[in-house]
Design a protein around this nucleic acid. Structure first.
Lengths: 374, 374
DNA sequence: CTTGTTTCCGAAACCGGTTTCGGCAAGAGT
DNA sequence: ACTCTTGCCGAAACCGGTTTCGGAAACAAG
C-alpha cells in the first residue's frame, strides 16, 4: 500500500468534479453528463463514472450547480409569526419530518419568518429572487390563499399543507379533518348523545368549512336532526372557545356534547363548564381536533384527533421535490387520516338536555359561585 | 416619460452586476470592488456605484459570491430531535428571532435536524462540506459539548446558546439562570419559608450545575442553612419532577417550598402534591424556570422565570454573523436575564415543616385516597 | 473502398460574481 | 524635463459545476 501514499485523500480538500475526471482520464464535462444521465454517454462509461465518484466520495456543490441550473436543492418554509396560538407544539416534529425527507435526497431546508399579508409576499419574492430556495411549503392554507396565487404567477413550485378553494395548479397534502369530525359525531351517538353542538374555527382558514361539513355529514349519517342554532364558528383561542360554549349552554335546549374544530377552543369549554358547575366528560362531553399536549394534561384529558406532524413534513417535502423536478401539480396531492386520541372528556350523557338547562340556570343564580369571564 | 419605455425594468430579469457596470460604463470588476469597499477605488466612484446599484435594485446572488468566497450568508441551525420534552413551545419565537436578525443583514437560515451524538456530527460535517451554511447556532449546550469541539477542530464559526465548561474559542449567549434561582430563594425567604428544597436538571446540560449553584448562592445570601438532603438532580420531565417531589416530601423534615430548575419537572410537583392532599401555593410553594405555556394554565398557575426566545434568537444570529465576519470569539459573549412570571404556586407557608410531615403521613395512610404513581 | 450515419466524448463557453495583475495617467520629486 | 510613485481602473483568470457544439471513431450501407 505504499504506492497509495501519494494518491491518498489529501486533508480536507473537497474533491470536485475535475478530481473525478482526472482520476478517470476524462474531462469534467463528460463526468457531469454521465452523472446527470445524459443520453450521449455510453452505458459502460456511465457505470465507471458513477463507481469512481462514489468511491472518491464526490458530492457536487449545490451552489455551483445552481449557477448554471438556477436550482440549489433547497426547500423553503416561511412561517407566519403574527398568529396568536398557532402550531407551536408541532413545529419541531414538522421540521424534523421535512428535513429528514429532504436530506434523504440531499436537499436542505431554509426557514424564514414573516408577518402575514404583504410582508409574507415580500419575503417569498426575496427568497425566490435571491434563489435561496427552489420551492416552498405553505402551511395553514386559507380558503383563498394569496401566497399560492403569488407563487403561481411567479411560476415558482410550491406545495400546500391544507387544501384551498381553487386548487388548480396546486399540489397539496392535507389531513382529512372532515372525516375526523364525522367520526366524532358517530362516537358521541354511540355513547347516547342526541343533541350535539359544533364550534368551528375561523372561516378564512380552509380547514374550517371542511370540518364543519364533516360534522354535518356525521349528523346525517347518524340520523340525528340538524339544528343550526347548535353550530357556531370562529373559535381559535381558549377564550373564544369558552365564549362559544357559554352561548351553546345558554340555549333553551343546550347540547349534551360539543364537537370542536380546534383543541385550543375546546379547552375553553373546560373554563365555561367550571363556571356552570358542569363536569366535562359527564355533564358535558367534548371531542376536538389537533392533539396539542395541553389537551392530554387537562383534567379530564381531552378526547381529540391527533395529526402526525412528522409524517406531514415528510410527505410535503417529498411532494415539493417532485414538483420542482417537474411533475404536474395535479399528480401531487395526498391525504392522511387523523388518529383518535381517546381521553376522558367524552362519555355517556349524564343528564338530558332539559336537566342540563335546569342545572345551568341554577348554577348561574347561585351567588356563591365565582363570577365568570364574560 | 415615454423615453423610459425602452429602459424600463424588463419583466423578471434579475439585474446582475454586469447590468450595473454597463449602466455606469465600467467593468463588473470595478463595481464589485466598489461595493465591497476595496481601497483602490476612488471615493467618488464608490459613491456613484452605490447609488446606481441602489437605484437599480441590484442584489448580489449569494451563491455566486459563494463560489469565489466560500461563504453564502447562511446561518445553520441543527435541532436535536431525540430529546423528549425539549424547547418545543419556544421554537417558533426562536426561529423568528434568528431570521429577523439574519434578514436584516440579508442572511438566511437553513435548518437541519438530527439525533444526538455521532449523527449530529455527521449532519454538521455534511452541511459544512456542502457549504450549506457558514456557521452554526448550537442550542442546549452540554457541560462538555461534542458539537463545539468538532466545529473548533474544523475551524467552522459557531455560537452557543448556553455556556460550556471550557469556553475557550467559543462565542456564546446565555440567560442567567443562576441569578433567577437565587432570586427565587430570596422571594421564598421574604414569603417566610425557611426550609427550601431544590430539584435540578440533568447534570450533563450546562445549565444544571449553574442553576444549582445559583440556588446555593441564594440560600447563602438569604442566610438560610444548607441541607444537602434537600437538593436533588436530574429531573427534566413531569414524572421525574413528581418523583423528586415525593422524595423531598417523604423526608422527616420536608421543605415547605421547592425551587425547580425546569418547568416540566415543576408540574410534576402538582401531581405529587395532589396525591398527598397538599395545595400548591399554600401547603407547598413552587418556583421554577422556563416559562412554558403549560405552567400558566396549571391550577394554580406556576410562578416561574420566563426566557425571551425571540430575543435570544436575535442576539445569537447577530453574534454568529459577527463571528463569521472574523471577530474573536472572546469578544462575542452576551447574557440576558430571565423575567419573573409571578403565578399562584408560591405564597406564605401555610404549615411548618413538622405539620407538613404530619399531614403527608396522614394522607398516605388514608385508604380513600387514590393510589399514587410510584 | 467510399460515403453517410451514429455513437460518444473532448473542448470551450457559460452562470454571476470576486480577486489578481498590470498599465495608464496624474502628481511628486529632483 | 524626466523619472518615480501613487491612485485608479480595465482585463482576465478564477470558483465548480452544466451545457452546447463539433469532430473523431465506429459502424452501416452502397
Amino acid at each position: 500500500m505504499p504506492t497509495e501514499a501519494k494518491t491518498a485523500a489529501r486533508p480536507r480538500h473537497r474533491i470536485k468534479i475535475s478530481d473525478v475526471a482526472d482520476a478517470l482520464g476524462m474531462t469534467k464535462g463528460t463526468v457531469s453528463r454521465a452523472l446527470n444521465g445524459y443520453p450521449d454517454i455510453a452505458e459502460s462509461t456511465r457505470l465507471k463514472v458513477h463507481r469512481k465518484a462514489e468511491a472518491m466520495g464526490y458530492r457536487p456543490l449545490a451552489q455551483a450547480q445552481g449557477m448554471r441550473t438556477g436550482r440549489t436543492r433547497t426547500l423553503g418554509l416561511v412561517l407566519q409569526t403574527d398568529i396568536p396560538g398557532a402550531e407551536r407544539p408541532f413545529l419541531s416534529d414538522f421540521l424534523a419530518g421535512i428535513t429528514q425527507a429532504a436530506s434523504a435526497e440531499n436537499w436542505t431546508l431554509t426557514v424564514a419568518t414573516s408577518a402575514g399579508g404583504a410582508a409574507m409576499e415580500q419575503t417569498l419574492e426575496r427568497l425566490v429572487h435571491e434563489r435561496k430556495s427552489d420551492g416552498f411549503i405553505l402551511p395553514r392554507t386559507r380558503v383563498r390563499d394569496g401566497r399560492a396565487e403569488l407563487l403561481k404567477r411567479l411560476e415558482v413550485p410550491f406545495v400546500l399543507f391544507g387544501r384551498v378553494a381553487d386548487d388548480s395548479g396546486c399540489a397539496w397534502f392535507d389531513i382529512l379533518g372532515e372525516e375526523a369530525m364525522a367520526e366524532a359525531v358517530e362516537r358521541l351517538r354511540v355513547l347516547g348523545h342526541r343533541r350535539i353542538g359544533f364550534v368551528g374555527g375561523a372561516p378564512e382558514y380552509n380547514f374550517a368549512p371542511l370540518r364543519e361539513a364533516g360534522f354535518r355529514r356525521g349528523l346525517e349519517a347518524a340520523g340525528l336532526p340538524l339544528d343550526e342554532a347548535l353550530i357556531l364558528r370562529g373559535a381559535m383561542l381558549r377564550e373564544e372557545g369558552a365564549r362559544a360554549t357559554r352561548r351553546l349552554l345558554s340555549l333553551e335546549a343546550p347540547p349534551t356534547a360539543i364537537v370542536f374544530a380546534v383543541d385550543l377552543a375546546a379547552l375553553g369549554a373546560y373554563d365555561a363548564a367550571r363556571d356552570r358547575g358542569l363536569a366535562i366528560g359527564r355533564d358535558l362531553s367534548v371531542i376536538s381536533y389537533d392533539g396539542i399536549p395541553e389537551g392530554s394534561w387537562a383534567q379530564p384529558s381531552l378526547t381529540t384527533f391527533g395529526v402526525d406532524s412528522h409524517l406531514a413534513g415528510e410527505r410535503l417535502a417529498g411532494l415539493l421535490i417532485r414538483r420542482i423536478r417537474g411533475e404536474a401539480p395535479e399528480e401531487l396531492r395526498e391525504t392522511a387520516k387523523a388518529r383518535l386520541l381517546a381521553g376522558g372528556s367524552d362519555g355517556p350523557p349524564n343528564l338530558t338536555s332539559e336537566d342540563l338547562a335546569a342545572r345551568i340556570s341554577a348554577a348561574l343564580h347561585d351567588p356563591s359561585r365565582p363570577q365568570e369571564g364574560e
